[in-house]
C-alpha cells in the first residue's frame, strides 16, 4: 500500500495551492491597493486640474484645509444620519415584512416577488421616479394625495431634503433586508413558536422572545452589508438634491465628488477619500464587535 516514492499528501497540497491563489490575490492587489496607494499619494500632493502650475508636495495641507472647513464636519454628520436612518428603517420594515410574508396567504409568492422588486431598480432610476413622479410638489402623487385630503403638499427636497433622500434609499434597501430576514424566518423551528404559545406567549411576546433572537444574526449581517453600500450612496443625492440645499445633504462621499469634479481639487478630494476610508474602518470596527457578540448565541 505505502510506496516510498509517493510524497506525503500534505506536502503535495502545499505545492499546488499558491499558483491557484495567485490570480485572485493579484487582481485584489491591483484593484484595491493600487488605487489606495494612489489616493494616499495624491492626498499629499498639490494637484488641481484647472491649474497645472500648482504642483509639488503639500505636506498635511490638504488634510488641514479639509478638516478646517465647516462643510467637512457637516458632511460626516450627514453621512451618519443617512446611514443610521436608513439602517433603522430597513431593519424595522425588514423584520415586519419578513414576519408578514412568512405567513400563509393567497398570492403569497406574487407578493414576495413584489416586495423584493425595488432591489432590481437601479439607484438613478429609483431616484428619478421618486423625485419626479412621487415627491414633486406640483405633479407628484404625494402632492396629489395631500391636496385631495386637504393638506398642503410638502416640498420634500426644499424643506426636508435629508428625509427625502433617506426615503428613497430606504425604499431601495428594504427589499434586501426583507429577503435576508425572510429566508431566516423560514429556518425558524415552528415547534419553538408552538412551545411559546403553550407557555402562554402572545403575538408581541413571541416576536420579542422567539423571533427576534432567532433573527439577531441575520439582522447583524444585513446591518453590515448595508453599511458598506450606504456609506457610498451617491446617485440618489446627485439626482435629487445635488447635496443641497446648501450643504444639507452633502455626505462625505458627495463632498469628495464636489472637491474632485466640481472644484477640480484632486489633492483635497484624495485627502477626503483617505478620511472616508478611516471613517468606514471605525464604523466597521463597531460592527464587527456587535457581530462577534451576536455570533456567540
Amino acid at each position: 500500500m505505502t510506496k516510498p516514492t509517493t510524497a506525503p499528501p500534505h506536502r503535495k497540497k502545499l505545492m499546488h495551492t499558491w499558483p491557484l491563489l495567485t490570480p485572485t490575490v493579484g487582481v485584489l492587489l491591483l484593484w484595491a491597493f493600487v488605487p489606495l496607494a494612489m489616493t494616499l499619494w495624491f492626498s499629499f500632493q498639490r494637484y488641481n486640474l484647472v491649474d497645472p502650475t500648482i504642483s509639488g508636495f503639500a505636506g498635511f495641507n490638504n488634510y488641514k484645509f479639509l478638516l478646517e472647513s465647516p462643510a467637512f464636519l457637516l458632511s460626516i454628520v450627514n453621512e451618519l444620519v443617512l446611514v443610521g436612518a436608513v439602517l433603522i428603517i430597513t431593519l424595522v420594515l425588514g423584520v415586519a415584512f419578513a414576519v408578514l410574508f412568512d405567513q400563509e396567504f393567497f398570492g403569497r409568492s406574487v407578493a414576495r416577488l413584489l416586495v423584493i422588486a425595488p432591489f432590481f431598480v437601479m439607484p438613478t432610476v429609483a431616484a428619478l421616479i421618486w423625485k419626479n413622479l412621487l415627491m414633486d410638489p406640483v405633479n407628484g402623487v404625494f402632492a396629489f394625495v395631500a391636496r385631495s385630503l386637504g393638506f398642503t403638499p410638502i416640498d420634500w427636497f426644499t424643506n426636508y431634503p435629508m428625509a427625502g433622500v433617506v426615503m428613497i434609499v430606504a425604499w431601495e434597501w428594504v427589499p434586501f433586508a426583507t429577503l435576508i430576514l425572510l429566508t431566516a424566518m423560514q429556518s425558524l423551528d415552528r415547534q419553538q413558536v408552538e412551545a411559546a404559545k403553550m407557555d402562554g406567549a402572545r403575538g408581541p411576546q413571541i416576536l420579542r422572545y422567539v423571533i427576534l433572537p432567532h433573527l439577531a444574526r441575520p439582522m447583524t449581517i444585513v446591518l453590515m452589508m448595508e453599511t458598506i453600500y450606504l456609506l457610498a450612496v451617491f446617485a440618489e443625492i446627485f439626482v435629487t438634491t445635488s447635496g443641497g440645499p446648501g450643504n444639507a445633504t452633502t455626505t462625505l462621499t458627495y463632498l469628495i465628488y464636489l472637491r474632485a469634479l466640481v472644484s477640480f481639487d484632486v489633492g483635497g478630494a484624495a485627502a477626503g477619500g483617505v478620511l472616508a476610508v478611516i471613517l468606514a474602518n471605525i464604523v466597521a470596527l463597531f460592527l464587527v464587535r456587535t457581530v462577534a457578540r451576536n455570533v456567540d448565541l
Binding site: 412551545a195 411559546a196 403553550m198 406567549a201
Partner: peptide
C-alpha cells in the same frame, strides 16, 4: 380556549427549546 389557558404542557419531538 387558547393553548396556554387549557393548563396542558407539551413535550415536542424536536424539544423546541429556546436556543438563546
Amino acid at each position: 380556549v387558547p393553548p396556554d389557558k387549557r393548563g396542558l404542557a407539551m413535550v415536542f419531538q424536536s424539544y423546541a427549546l429556546y436556543p438563546h
